[in-house]
């Protein structure tokens, strides 16, 4: 396939993915908006006003970047894992496998589709947060870079999960038992500096801590960890996940006999 044909094929998958999640917007775009609004009301307004300040900011201001990242993580992961698994389940993956599309075009298409949903939900949540607090962006480039890297990393994670999944239960195990606990313990609602030394050290093993803090640094200018080291670590994970997903796809794991 020529580069131009590959570009058309890539755009076809991305368009298909966007069409899919916008067609079912009550399942994909509305729930995170409602959930995050509840977080803002309960944790930000009601409980947050009693907590006072954290990291030099109102509690509401402090948790908003974490909640935005939580939305990006869950939605970029959720989009790819459910879309690619459905494609496998309905055998419509065969439409792509019989075509001359190289594996990297298929992978890029699904990952970018997931990133678009993750970032769109992140944008919706950001706009909603403006009803509850005042936000200014301290480092635009860092903010955007961290969102893009995080969305791509979790879209890749969703893709790998879908490749290995054999039934619908398999696509909810990782989000329920790994992703959600790591996100809640990833410094979304608190600064890890508040933790005893032991638990702080344990938290540093949680990759989501770095993403949340790098994003918080971009928005608020404060972080519990080194931002540039965090971004380098996310980049390394993205490359590793990408190569692994591509290898699986080329090999036909879970999709070819």
């Amino acid at each position: 396939m020529s580069a131009r044909e590959q570009w058309v094929a890539f755009l076809t998958i991305v368009t298909k993915e966007i069409r899919r999640f916008t067609r079912i917007w009550p399942q994909t775009l509305l729930p995170p908006a409602i959930t995050m609004t509840l977080y803002f009301v309960i944790f930000g307004n009601l409980i947050g006003s009693r907590i006072g300040h954290m990291g030099g900011f109102d509690y509401m201001q402090y948790i908003v970047p974490g909640l935005i990242m939580m939305s990006v993580i869950q939605n970029s992961y959720g989009n790819v894992v459910s879309s690619f698994f459905s494609t496998k389940f309905q055998h419509s993956i065969e439409e792509m496998l019989v075509s001359p599309m190289p594996a990297h075009v298929i992978l890029n298409g699904f990952v970018v589709g997931g990133m678009v949903r993750g970032m769109l939900v992140g944008l919706i949540v950001s706009l909603l947060s403006l009803f509850f607090t005042h936000l200014t962006m301290q480092h635009v480039l860092i903010t955007v870079t961290v969102v893009v890297l995080t969305a791509s990393l979790f879209a890749l994670g969703g893709f790998i999960n879908a490749i290995f999944a054999n039934k619908f239960d398999d696509i909810s195990i990782v989000p329920t038992f790994i992703l959600t606990p790591l996100t809640y313990l990833g410094g979304v609602f608190y600064s890890i500096d508040l933790l005893p030394e032991f638990w702080r050290a344990v938290s540093l093993a949680n990759p989501i801590v770095y993403m949340v803090n790098a994003f918080r640094y971009g928005v608020l200018g404060v972080s519990d960890v080194n931002v540039y080291a965090s971004m380098a670590a996310i980049c390394a994970f993205v490359v590793a996940f990408y190569l692994f997903a591509l290898w699986l796809l080329r090999r036909g794991t879970g999709i070819r006999h």
Partner: peptide, 21 residues
């Protein structure tokens, strides 16, 4: 082996896209 929720026209056009058309 097509997506049961997609429209007939979209299924055919999308398949063409997979071939770079």
């Amino acid at each position: 082996n097509f997506n049961q929720f997609e429209k007939v026209f979209d299924i055919v056009v999308t398949q063409a896209g997979f071939y770079g058309i």
